[in-house]
Simulated assay, not measured.
Amino acid sequence: MAHSTSAATQRIDEDWLRHHPLPQPGAGSDKESRGHVLVVGGSPQIPGAILLAATAALRAGAGKLVVATCEQVAPLLATALPEARVIALPQTADGALAVAGVDDLAELTGDIDALLVGPGMQHEATTVAFARRLLAATACPAVLDAYAMGAIPSASRPHTVVTPHAGEMAHLSGLSKDEVVQRPCEIATAAAEDWQATVVLKGAASWIAAPDHHAWLHVGGNAGLGVSGSGDVLAGGIVGLLARGLPPLHGSAWGVALHARAGELLAQRIGPLGYLAREIADALPQVMARYG
């Protein structure tokens, strides 16, 4: 499919990245200056998604990390991710995070610089209710992924990023997947305006749209990025960049660009297919170093 750009559209390419540099820590900076991230998600059946997202947030340069997950998963996650504080939240009988668990995060809501909700969470209705309640309790930039994106049409919350692929956008918008694939820029831009959020409509060509009608296009990466867990890494990378101070539109654009370039690096190192999502996260620092 050919992609054209309008007057209001920018292409996210090497020239764009050079003219919109990442913030660089000063000589005396510490973990506090690089931002405090809260990642909420996980379930007994999908415990790895939150591990991938949380790891990517740190790999993207965030300084402090708190992870909140269901009580069944928390001990395993604490062992797998020693860099994080891990909070065990109550879960329902079917493995979803209980909405009442938002209250257990009250002490953090004024202390975090960026929030990610959704990776690995099960049961859409419960996840949406949890995400809405948590968004209402926080004011920092937020990224919604997977089922948590269902909270955005009624959230009316500024500084929020949603990261759907075409199928998820179809579900959120009520359109068919074919419509989304055929009119990605128009649909992403309309959704961003309707939801007053930054929309990352991800794919081989990713459209990043802001509520002010700006639409940015990124084309790159490779087929190997289409692997289980890759979207969790992208969401984690974006929230890490938001914690470092990038606004939602720029943080989303950089997150997409770094994710794609990590895939390109791994294709050269390992092969075009078969590298793992965890390896995408691990490649982010090397890719960022090119632009330091």
Rank of each mutant, 00 (worst) to 15 (best):
T69L: 05
D212E: 13
Q91M: 08
V233S: 00
H250V: 10
A205H: 13
P285E: 06
A210Q: 10
R261C: 04
I87L: 13
Q72C: 01
M149E: 01
A205L: 07
G271H: 10
D145W: 07
A151S: 06
S230W: 11
L52E: 04
V66C: 07
Q91W: 07
V287N: 02
R269D: 09
E179H: 12
V227L: 09
N222R: 09
A68R: 12
A151L: 07
R278Q: 14
S228G: 15
L81G: 09
G221L: 13
A155L: 09
R244I: 08
S4A: 01
G236A: 07
P23T: 08
A188E: 03
A283N: 06
A192Y: 06
A283E: 05
G226N: 15
N222H: 06
G229P: 03
A114E: 01
P285W: 06
V227D: 05
V73F: 03
L108H: 05
Y291W: 15
V256R: 08
T163N: 01
Q122S: 10
L65E: 06
E107G: 14
R11P: 02
G28S: 15
A129F: 04
L246I: 03
Q182Y: 11
R11G: 00
T160E: 02
S230I: 14
G35D: 03
Q24L: 04
R18D: 10
R18C: 09
V67G: 03
R278N: 08
V219Q: 14
T109Q: 05
A125C: 08
V180Y: 02
A8R: 14
H20G: 08
S176N: 12
G41K: 08
A146I: 13
S29D: 12
A139S: 12
A190Q: 07
A210Y: 04
D282L: 10
V86G: 01
S33Y: 13
A170M: 12
D103W: 07
A235E: 02
T109H: 05
V161I: 14
E124N: 07
P47K: 04
T163P: 01
L273T: 13
I87G: 00
A56H: 06
G226A: 15
D30G: 15
A257V: 07
A49Y: 01
Q196R: 15
T109V: 14
Q10H: 10
L58C: 04
M1R: 15
L97G: 00
T92S: 03
M169T: 10
L108Q: 07
Q182V: 12
S156I: 00
A260F: 11
L51V: 12
H20C: 10
L201Y: 05
G245D: 03
D232R: 01
A60V: 01
R85H: 12
L258F: 11
